[in-house]
Design a protein around this nucleic acid. Structure first.
Length: 485
DNA sequence: TTTTGAGTTGTTCGA
DNA sequence: GTCGAACAACTCAAA
C-alpha cells in the first residue's frame, strides 16, 4: 500500500466524460499523486429519485465510455468501471486502494445531490476527504434567485441575470501528466449491458454519431466555422445543417458549457458580424441552464404539472394514436418525418420537436408525460431538465408556458420550415416523389398526382389520423376548462 | 406593499 | 398575397 503522502486520489466521473475542463480531474492531477479514474453505472439508486437513463442514451453512454477509456489509455491511466451502488462502491474502493481523497464534479440535481451527500458522509466516516466542484452549468442554481429566494420562472429575466454574472471561469486544459494508481479491478463496458443486442436497433445511431470528447470538440469547431453565420435563421430549418448538434455531447459532459461559451465568444470577437448569431446560440445554452435550474427547484418536473390547474385535465387515453405517433404513422408528413428521424438517429430537429409535441398534446390530447417518456427513451440527448421542461412548455402547463391557443399547424410548419420538402423526402421516403406543393398535405393531391408519385393513401402512407381543424377546435375547447386556474 | 410592464418558437380571419 | 388584430388571462420580476 502506498504511504500516506503518495496515497492515490480517486476521480469519480459521471456526466462529465472528458479530460479537458474537468475541475475534479484537474485538481487531482495537481496533487501530483497517482490517480484512479472511476465510473460507476449506478442503477440501484432509485430510492434517491435519480431517473434511469433511456435506451438511446444508454447506447451513447457505452460509446462515450469507450472514447474516454481510449483517451485515458493514451494518457497512461486506466478507466475503472463498476456496476452497482456508488454509495457502497466508492468508499470501498477508497479503502482497498488506500486513497485519501475523492474528487468529483457535482451534478446540480436534487437526487444526485442527495447521493453525493451520502457518499461524502460515508467517506468522512472513513477519514477520506471528498472534494467537489461545480461546472455542469453556466451558473449554479443558488447564484440566480429572486429577492424572495426563488428560482426564476421566466427565461428573459433569467438570461439577463446569467449574463450579468459575466464570463464563466476560463476552461481548464486537460491535465498535462497523470500518474496511474495501483491496479484496480474493473468491469468491462460490455458487462454493463448498455447496448442493444437482439434486436440491434443502434445501426442508425452508429451511422449518425461519433460520441466522445474529441468528436465533441471537432463538432464545436466545425459549427463555429461553418454554421454560426446564419445560425439565428438556419437553426429553424430541419432541411439544413444549421444547428450545432452538440446536445448529446453536452448531455454526457463530453464538452462543457463554459468551453462552448468561451469558444463562441472568441469566434464572435474575431468576426463581429456574427454577434447576433452568437447571442442566439448562447441563449440556447442559457435555456439548458434555465431548464436545469427549474429541475433543481422541482425535482419531479417530469411527472408533475408545474401549473396545478392542469392536474384535472382529462387527457385522452388512446394507445392506437400514441403508437401511430411513435412510429411516424400519423398521416402528417412533417410529424412523421420527425418521429422517424428520432427513431433512426436518436435526435430530432428542434423545430420539429415542437411540431410533434404540439401534435401529440393538442391534436391528439394525449398526456404530455407519454410524449416526454418516449423522448426520454429514444433521444440520445435526453436531458433531465430540457426534456420535461420543454414538454411542459408545449403542453401549456410549464414555466413561461406557450399560450393555450398556440396550436401548431403541421402543414404550415412544414411549408414554412421545409419549403422544398427535403426533410420529409429524406425521412418519409414513400412521399419523396410528390411535388413539393403537396408533400406536406398529400391528401390534397388528385388521384393522378398520387398515382404518378406512387402513393396510395391508406396503403403506402396513412390518411391523417385526425383532421387539423377538428383537432385544433377540440384542443381549444379542452383547454378552455383549464384557463384561469 | 403595490404597481407596472412584459412574456421563445403560432394561427386564423378579415380587410 | 400581405398585414394587423384577436386569440386571454395570468404570473412573474423588479421598481
Amino acid at each position: 500500500m502506498a504511504d500516506r503522502s503518495d496515497a492515490p486520489c480517486i476521480v469519480w466521473f459521471r456526466d462529465d466524460l472528458r479530460l479537458s475542463d474537468h475541475s475534479a480531474l484537474h485538481a487531482a492531477a495537481a496533487t501530483g499523486r497517482p490517480v484512479i479514474c472511476l465510473y460507476v453505472l449506478d442503477e440501484t439508486s432509485r430510492r434517491t429519485g435519480a431517473r434511469p437513463i433511456g435506451g438511446a442514451a444508454r447506447w451513447w453512454l457505452a460509446q462515450s465510455l469507450r472514447a474516454l477509456e481510449k483517451r485515458m489509455g493514451d494518457a497512461g491511466v486506466p478507466l475503472v468501471l463498476r456496476n452497482g451502488n456508488a454509495a457502497a462502491i466508492i468508499p470501498e474502493l477508497a479503502r482497498a486502494s488506500g486513497a485519501r481523497d475523492v474528487f468529483w464534479n457535482r451534478i446540480a440535481q436534487a437526487p444526485h445531490q442527495a447521493a453525493e451527500d451520502d457518499i461524502a458522509t460515508a467517506l468522512r466516516e472513513r477519514g477520506v476527504h471528498g472534494q467537489t466542484f461545480a461546472g455542469d452549468l453556466l451558473a449554479t442554481p443558488d447564484s440566480v434567485r429572486t429577492k424572495e429566494g426563488r428560482g426564476l420562472r421566466v427565461f428573459t429575466p433569467f438570461w439577463r441575470r446569467i449574463q450579468a454574472l459575466g464570463a464563466p471561469p476560463d476552461p481548464l486544459p486537460s491535465p498535462r501528466r497523470l500518474r496511474a494508481g495501483p491496479d484496480v479491478a474493473s468491469d468491462t463496458i460490455e458487462s454493463l449491458c448498455l447496448e442493444p443486442t437482439r434486436p440491434d436497433w443502434a445501426g442508425g445511431l452508429r451511422e449518425t454519431w461519433t460520441p466522445g470528447e474529441s468528436a465533441a470538440q471537432k463538432r464545436l469547431k466545425d459549427f463555429l466555422n461553418a454554421h454560426l453565420a446564419g445560425y439565428a435563421h438556419d437553426r429553424d430549418r430541419p432541411d439544413r445543417d444549421g444547428t450545432s448538434g452538440l446536445s448529446p455531447h453536452l448531455r454526457f459532459g463530453e464538452i462543457s458549457p463554459r468551453q462552448i461559451w468561451h469558444a463562441t465568444h472568441f469566434a464572435a470577437a474575431e468576426r463581429p458580424a456574427l454577434a447576433a448569431d452568437a447571442d442566439k446560440f448562447l441563449s440556447e445554452l442559457g435555456w439548458r441552464d434555465f431548464c436545469r435550474h427549474l429541475l433543481f427547484d422541482v425535482p419531479d418536473l417530469a411527472t408533475r404539472n408545474l401549473q396545478p390547474s392542469f392536474d384535472g385535465f382529462s387527457w385522452r387515453h388512446d394507445d392506437e394514436a400514441l403508437k401511430a405517433w411513435q412510429r411516424g404513422q400519423t398521416g402528417y408528413p412533417i410529424v412523421d418525418a420527425g418521429m422517424r428521424q428520432l427513431w433512426h438517429t436518436g435526435v430530432m430537429h428542434n423545430r420539429v420537436r415542437m411540431v410533434v409535441a404540439s401534435f401529440l398534446v393538442k391534436h391528439l390530447l394525449i398526456d404530455w408525460r407519454a410524449g416526454e417518456q418516449w423522448f426520454w427513451d429514444t433521444l440520445v440527448d435526453a436531458d433531465a431538465g430540457n426534456n420535461p421542461a420543454n414538454w411542459q412548455w408545449v403542453a401549456g402547463c410549464g414555466a413561461d408556458a406557450a399560450p393555450y391557443f398556440r396550436v401548431f399547424n403541421p402543414v404550415l410548419q412544414g411549408e414554412k420550415f421545409d419549403p422544398d420538402g427535403a426533410y420529409v423526402s429524406r425521412w418519409v421516403g414513400e412521399l419523396a416523389q410528390l411535388p413539393k406543393k403537396l408533400i406536406h398535405q398529400p391528401w390534397e393531391a388528385t388521384p393522378l398526382e398520387l398515382a404518378s408519385a406512387g402513393v396510395t393513401l391508406g396503403k403506402t402512407y396513412p390518411h391523417p389520423i385526425i383532421d387539423h381543424r377538428k383537432g385544433r377546435e377540440r384542443a381549444l375547447k379542452a383547454y378552455e376548462k383549464v384557463r384561469g386556474g
